[in-house]
Write a protein that binds this DNA or RNA. Structure first.
Length: 354
DNA sequence: CATCCGTGGAG
DNA sequence: TCTCCAAGGAT
């Protein structure tokens, strides 16, 4: 391995510029012999799938405080885990997180596999996450290929083929750079570079440790790479949410189906936007709260009308059931509907609870 | 290989 | 206001 290899420059840069992250063993601590906890690495990698570091930090701290090890998590109630995941998005991750914890706790004695194949056989762990855990937690020379790595490789080698077609070529190029020594630090180094220097827009090529060998920069096209096939426009869907509060303060809620949109999460009875069209959950004096909720999902925009009502005890809904609500357990869309309804409930409250 | 699956910040 | 996109995986 020549002194000037990409990996050596990246590691030298990382030793100085590594970001301090709650789940990370930094280069100094690593040199002192400290190693990452596979449970923490796994937890962070699941949370970081398509999610920013800034958003993950709070959730990671909360989860590892509530459930310090995989056995504790495996013993948690589904509703508690889903409630704590609320707001982070991609809720299949939370469902698979629990499934995976229970497999590792019950069948592997609480020890995560160290090999890519063993890891990738677990729920919620795909090619990227398996490589990341193997490299970062077990220091094996596996190659991680995420959006950062794709961008760094596409630019450094001036790959013009658009994603996702270029995926295999970029993976091969990344694999050729992966060092035998400190592969875990290297994996984090490439991703840190992509997150802080080789950014999607306005890359800081002037301070990049790879600039002198970067073909994209040499050709003046670095910022245009990687090329991507154009995306389809998002359609707009419309729907109605029904928020009913009982006189004793209980709310009419339903557990959403285990699969699909907001699967496994708590929600208000709704209509007309997610494939269901059941109408109001019960006959009542439904009032429009006057504020339309707007929300954007991965593949569509939503405009949600919010109807609210106050009902006496003894009311018998056709679907959902009345129960206590912790607003933080709601996914963001449902939380928006709750917030929008407060105007209505604030003015109807004095008569009922005063 | 295409589609589905959240959310919030940046520009 | 609106598009992009962030440490992807499952089907």
């Amino acid at each position: 391995m020549c002194e000037d290899a990409v990996s050596q420059r990246l590691l030298a840069w990382y030793d100085i510029n590594a970001r301090k992250l709650a789940w990370r063993v930094g280069p100094d601590a690593w040199r002192a012999g400290q190693r990452a906890d596979p449970y923490a690495v796994w937890m962070s990698e699941i949370m970081l799938q398509q999610t920013t570091v800034a958003a993950v930090d709070k959730y990671f701290r909360r989860f590892t405080t509530l459930w310090p090890d995989v056995h504790a998590l495996a013993s948690a109630k589904d509703a508690d885990v889903m409630g704590e995941w609320a707001g982070l998005g991609y809720y299949a991750r939370a469902r698979n997180l629990l499934k995976c914890a229970r497999v590792v706790s019950g069948e592997w004695g609480g020890v995560f596999p160290g090999t890519r194949a063993g890891l990738q056989a677990l729920p919620g762990i795909g090619p990227y996450t398996a490589a990341a855990i193997s490299a970062i937690a077990y220091d094996r020379p596996e190659t991680v290929v995420d959006g950062n790595v794709e961008r760094v490789m596409a630019r450094h080698f001036a790959v013009q083929t658009p994603l996702p077609k270029a995926k295999k070529d970029l993976t091969d190029l990344a694999g050729a750079e992966t060092p035998e020594h400190r592969p875990g630090c290297y994996a984090q180094a490439v991703m840190d570079l992509g997150a802080t220097i080789c950014t999607p827009r306005n890359p800081a090529c002037g301070i990049c440790p790879l600039s002198k060998t970067c073909l994209g920069r040499a050709r003046g096209i670095a910022a245009e790479l990687p090329r991507k096939t154009p995306k389809k426009p998002k359609p707009t869907r419309r729907g109605i949410a029904y928020l009913a509060r009982r006189d004793d303060g209980a709310w009419l809620l339903e557990d959403r189906p285990a699969r699909g949109l907001l699967g496994g999460m708590l929600g208000w009875p709704t209509e007309g936007w997610d494939g269901t069209d059941d109408g109001a959950p019960m006959p009542a004096n439904w009032q429009d709260v006057g504020v339309e909720v707007t929300h954007t999902f991965t593949h569509f925009h939503l405009r949600l009308q919010v109807l609210a009502t106050q009902v006496p005890q003894g009311a018998n809904p056709a679907r959902g059931n009345f129960r206590a609500l912790r607003p933080a357990d709601l996914p963001t869309l449902m939380r928006k509907a709750f917030d929008a309804s407060q105007r209505y409930f604030d003015q109807s409250e004095p008569d009922t609870l005063g």
